[in-house]
Amino acid sequence: MHIIVCVKQVPDTTNVRINPETNTLMREGVESIMNPFDEYALEEALRLKDAHGARVTVITMGPPQADVVLREAMARGADDGVLLTDRAFAGADTLATSYAIAQAIRKLTSRADLILFGKQAIDGDTAQVGPGVSEFLNCALVTYVKSICVEGDRFTVETQMDEGVDVIEGRLPAVMTVVKEAAVPRFASLSGWMAAKKAAIPRWGAQDVGAAPEACGLNGSPTKVVKIFAPPVKTGGTRMDGREEPSAAVEQILKLLHEKGVA
């Protein structure tokens, strides 16, 4: 079985600040990390590898320094990685990104059994690249997957829906996007990191993957950012301090809720 996991390097959004003038992210003091949802996708792949034996390949598209997320994945147990990096890819929207990744997967193998993504990336939050790749590859798609079972060329997955869990069966190959309700990601061991640091990671550009220039990067991106604005700042609300007299605070809250007609 050959499993491909697509990962993205994203800014760590736990402590993000927005420049009030340009409404863009202030990068200073913000670290780059592997998109957290992709960690769950990787873990599902590694569990399948543990259970059935598989080759797990990680792919990312980004600037040259994005290779660190591939190494992190390899430190955890992925077998190899591919870095898609080229100026021609710059400015790609989700369509052009999906195209480039699909091209890379085509070059990598004629038969990928499973192609896994995180549910979405925490920077753009679009959740479109996984489905986009499935379209380009003309391959079955299951989104919001929380567990994967594979038997022969058939799979059974559970997907996390708002109203409950769906169980879906199908035939490989398939593209899946994974939610954080999946298994807890493993840690990279020190010896795993040592091996991953030394690993050779091929860098592929647009030409290497046979991507049409007009379909890459900004040229291939129909999405245009017309305006960026920050959502209006929410007022702080009302705070009840219950440290001194909790019961009084509770009564106050109940009174307030009654007044608003909530309770």
């Binding site: 298994a183 807890v184 990601p185 493993r186 061991s189 020190l190 010896s191």
Partner: peptide, 11 residues
């Protein structure tokens, strides 16, 4: 040990 238990290593 949790499901992601990873033992320390000696260097």
């Amino acid at each position: 040990a949790k499901s992601n238990f990873t033992p320390g290593e000696e260097i």
